[in-house]
Design a protein around this nucleic acid. Sequence first.
DNA 1: CCTCCTGAGGTAAGCGCTTTCCTGGAAGGC
DNA 2: GCCTTCCAGGAAAGCGCTTACCTCAGGAGG
Lengths: 340, 340
Amino acid sequence: MATLADVARRAGVSTATVSRIINNSPKPVAEALRERVLAAVAELQFVPNANAQQLARADRTAVGVIVHDVSDPYFAEITRGLQRVATEHGRLVIICNSYREPERELAYVDLLHAHRTAAIVLAGSGYVDPATTEQLERKLRVFEATGGRIAVIGRHEHAGDAIVPENEHGGCLAADALYRLGHTTIGVIAGPGHLTTTTDRLAGVRAAAREHKRRLTARQIEYAGFDRAGGMAATARLLDRNPGLTAIAALNDSMAIGALACLRERGLRVPEDISVIGFDDMPVSVDVTPPLSTVRLPLEDLGVRAMSLVLGTPSDTPRVEHAAASLVLRGTTAQAATAS
Amino acid sequence: MATLADVARRAGVSTATVSRIINNSPKPVAEALRERVLAAVAELQFVPNANAQQLARADRTAVGVIVHDVSDPYFAEITRGLQRVATEHGRLVIICNSYREPERELAYVDLLHAHRTAAIVLAGSGYVDPATTEQLERKLRVFEATGGRIAVIGRHEHAGDAIVPENEHGGCLAADALYRLGHTTIGVIAGPGHLTTTTDRLAGVRAAAREHKRRLTARQIEYAGFDRAGGMAATARLLDRNPGLTAIAALNDSMAIGALACLRERGLRVPEDISVIGFDDMPVSVDVTPPLSTVRLPLEDLGVRAMSLVLGTPSDTPRVEHAAASLVLRGTTAQAATAS
DNA sequence: CCTCCTGAGGTAAGCGCTTTCCTGGAAGGC
DNA sequence: GCCTTCCAGGAAAGCGCTTACCTCAGGAGG
């Protein structure tokens, strides 16, 4: 594998000159030399060793992104936003999937730190468990102490820059919409209980119930994975435990789509027999039938803003930006059948 | 930022010893020393510089993945497979989105080469343009010449390890199914014409038409982006140019979903008025209404196999594995209305 | 009691770059 | 014509690690 020195030897110049040329440094270089060096680079098919460059420069350019799973549309959208901004700034982004496992997430923080990435963006890693949170927190602090930038999407625990979706408000919006449509008791299908995304959204639902003076007991809440399969399973259990249910609030769209599938299997019509509302407004939500009513979160924008925060000028005080949740009523929600 | 030397000083040992301990090398070290060093590591919050390590070791561990767009479910599934295998092997994967732009793809190959990744997996980068292909090819050769491993998903041009989905056969399957249902003329909505995925699948459709002795003229084929919006646009044009069309073959599921949306807008019933068949069998395809008939490709498996190839023992002769396409008939296809 | 072996631990030479500082010659000033 | 200034280009010192090789005890063997 050709090195800088090989190129220098070949072109009959010093390594310093070659380095200056390939990095087109401001230092002027005679045209003749430049051409000779470039020719040598081409002949030897020289590609500079990025590890050596980074070591010598001590600069940090890449940005690490830790998400639960890029193949989940929710994170895919966020990631798209992150990437776009990073690319505009000429930054490489390293994507790491934690698959919702705290240990993997901790390991990735170390790995990104080891690679001296300029920044780390954490999406969706809000854990309820204080031990996990604390460990993560410690690692993040160390990373920051060594000059790394951090932004989190969707959690409060880390006292640093953050983009926080209005999860609680969104949950409130969803439940409120259902109650206003005349549904007196609603079922909730929730994601994993150890994620703050789940607890926050659920808190919103609870608040709405309180406001409408409706009961919301444990029987009406089913937890499962934040995906289609989880949604199907939770819906099945919910239906079994709450006969005659007329409305379901799913804490994300994937689960809502699973709910729709389960309902279809059981021969229940949506929205005539039962209303469903999701959360996130993933792109696919308009293509299911009926099109999913949901709480919209500006997903791609979340990524854009987080990356901008991390690549922009640092702030001495934590910046916490909120991302608005808004109601999008489509085809899966309808007025409750009045007095049967 | 603490360095190895700092730790050594703190623990009162040499850097060699610290290095051995943190990498738990086979060389035996007295227990007392080990503890002292580990304590120093913790106190100084030392995280080894991965760049320096890689430079010194000259080993290559990370694997680069170049896909069009991870947020596209097609690539998301493939990526999931790639990641799973890489993680099992303890490898870091660097995901790069080319957004279907050849130049960006070339730049990424250089970048991954520069970072001395152990391997590069290219997904979906089959370009029809010979100039692009040749440039890419040259870069890949250089990378291989310096010891890098390469696997491509879905193209033939690169004479190396490859996982090739049966795109042509799949196209044939789709069109054949439509013809067998009694549709005499079918419309095709195709992806970008410069991608081999498009041309291969289209070739299959043409073959089926030939076999069934049906005409398939340029008027019946509309090209657009390989996504939902492209599908909508292409369908609109197709319908305008071919009144009375009873069947549409979409060259991927995203386009098919777009077609469904367009058809819905126009008040055409699927499958009563018009049949639609997709390609890929993305997870979401079962959730649209009616559930999408499609040609299934084992997406995640594609990723698993490509990564296995690249992390397994090298072969002196190129290994080309095929991934079977299979027909999945669901709700969007029906018998053509007989003799109106 | 001396030699030789063994093995824990240290020394130092890189890995492939960047960059500061230095050099020597050409150009410019008087 | 000589001295100063300027600037293109080179020498070399790192960047933070790894690792081949060396050292120096202590124990075994004769």
